[in-house]
């Protein structure tokens, strides 16, 4: 008899042969496949327009794929709205421009989806929200409106909002790209904590320091295709592809 821990678990994200063409004929994803294991931190890098964000947005159904298949935590992402909703409940997302709800206080921002989606009582939701806000270090701002916070604080609220839904996977879509340099550190620190806790994370980022320090694996994309992927140390020290070399040389 095998003990359950020793049984190999299937990847939590199985994305096979994804194709996505935008109106105007731009191929954002071109036969792109990726698998992500539970607890893995994967960083997706590549030049702008490579399809990194599109890949993330397809994973939780913000964009529809033209062909291919996505299975997340044994749920198939297809035309069935129930499946789509089920996947969205398990997948948290943090956006480049935060996308907080400007007409709600920070506390309400973090609580509202818990009440509507997880069907928690307001009291319970706010309790969890305060825990999450404390975790990202801004519990004292619970009563403020998002527009009164700095970019870094807003992004940490957005992370707390996603975490409060107890997701199994977190997607970070250029979470620090819209921030002033002095605020990038505080957001990256929260993301590092999260990685250490064993959260499954897929991060589109330009922060190579973060990628080296935190990620287990790096995926390099260009023109919607997978160019190269590998364990982080190996990827940065000895990339196999000439295009990866060229890209790394440009940004480091």
């Amino acid at each position: 008899m095998f003990s359950p821990e020793l049984q190999p678990q299937p990847p939590i994200v199985i994305a096979d042969n994804l194709c996505k063409t935008f109106a105007g004929g731009i191929k954002a994803l071109d036969n792109f496949s990726a698998r992500i294991d539970r607890g893995e931190v994967v960083v997706v890098i590549g030049p702008s327009g490579a399809g990194k964000s599109t890949f993330l947005r397809c994973l939780n159904g913000l964009e529809d794929i033209d062909s291919g298949s996505i299975i997340i935590d044994n749920i198939v992402l297809n035309d069935n709205p129930a499946n789509r909703m089920a996947i969205r409940r398990e997948v948290g997302m943090v956006f480049q421009h935060f996308n907080l709800f400007p007409h709600m206080t920070v506390l309400r921002n973090v609580s509202i989806a818990q009440q509507k989606v997880r069907k928690r009582s307001r009291k319970e939701a706010e309790h969890i929200s305060l825990d999450m806000l404390a975790k990202v270090g801004i519990a004292d701002k619970a009563g403020s409106y998002p527009n009164h916070l700095s970019g870094g604080q807003q992004q940490r609220v957005a992370i707390a909002r996603a975490l409060a839904m107890n997701p199994k996977i977190m997607l970070f879509d250029e979470a620090t790209s819209a921030l002033d340099p002095e605020m990038i550190g505080e957001v990256l620190a929260v993301m590092k904590d999260l990685a250490r806790e064993g959260m499954t994370m897929i991060c589109v980022t330009h922060e190579m320091g973060f990628a080296r320090e935190v990620s287990d694996r790096v995926i390099f994309m260009d023109n919607g295709k997978l160019i190269e992927e590998g364990p982080t140390v190996q990827f940065f020290s000895q990339p196999a592809q000439a295009r990866t070399w060229a890209f790394l040389e440009q940004i480091i």
């Binding site: 939780n60 159904g61 913000l62 909703m85 969205r88 409940r89 997948v91 948290g92 997302m93 956006f95 421009h97 996308n99 907080l100 709800f101 989806a113 509507k116 989606v117 957005a158 909002r161 996603a162 839904m165």
Partner: peptide
Amino acid sequence: RGQWEACYSLGMT
């Protein structure tokens, strides 16, 4: 559009 995307990403109808 980001407001919609935030709602949807949180699983809201």
